[in-house]
Amino acid sequence: MPTSSPALEIDGLVKDFGPVGALDGRMVRVLDGVSLRAERGAVTVLLGANGAGKTTTLECAQGLQRADGGRVRLLGEDPWRATPQLRARVGVMLQDGGLPPSVRPLALLRHVASMYADPLPVDALAGRLGLDAFGAVSIRRLSGGQKQRLALACALVGRPEVVFLDEPSAGLDPQSRTIVFDIIRELRADGLAVILTTHLLDDAQRLADYVFIVEGGRTVAEGTVAELTADTEADGTRELRFETVPGLSFPSDLLPHLLQRETEPGQYVLRGPLTADDVARLARWWDACGVMPTSISLAPRSLEDVFLDISGRSIR
């Protein structure tokens, strides 16, 4: 099959659940026109609030759910009728992990590896993901981050061409997060199609080559992060972020036309129609306070703004 065709193609996907007893036995349409494409050598992110339909979309793409309408093509085939050979080319990390609690991590990984003709060396993979440190205890004793790393190893052990990661950073401690994000970038560099869902804008901003925003069961926006955050309305809205000592309070007469907040201790965000003069005034105030930021960034709209504009609500 030519490598130019997308790894995953979804057109107008429709999925109904039900009948739902609480709704007098009616069906509920959870997906109503999701469309997306995922290319090889790229990280494709499905971004949306909880309940937007991200997981259901992935499950239709993985062959775990049958589409009620639209078209799904995974590596050119219908995933609902996936052959073992197709499944061998696709790695899946489920949101809830799908890990048996009474089994030991390395025993599970070896078992999953035994389903493939030519799996990755288990010991090397386990070492890379830091699984060997807890390989001998049963899975029920693992932390959330350890379980996520094991689930990722299980998704990768068969040398897939396409990897689905449903909320891969859920429950990750900072160390696991770094390992997982590094691996996602390596997979992209190795030419895999990585498809992941997240409701974390920061994840999307850091990892995504291409973003599909899913809201209310349909794709409402798509593009690279740069495209999505480009100032389409030409109102001059920009976001200035800087990092310095925590607890600075902005004087009320300084830049009153901008939204100002300290998002995390020492992380400040100013948003609005920002001018060069505003930046100069801000710099004079830093000078007056005797602080020098350790980092400054200026961007057009953030993904969060985009999401707010599209859905009228916060993603969290």
Partner: peptide
Amino acid sequence: VRQAGGGTAAPLPARVLRH
């Protein structure tokens, strides 16, 4: 060493017996 090799399934009897 490239990871993407296009995974291949073990034969059906092997998969069933191993499971």
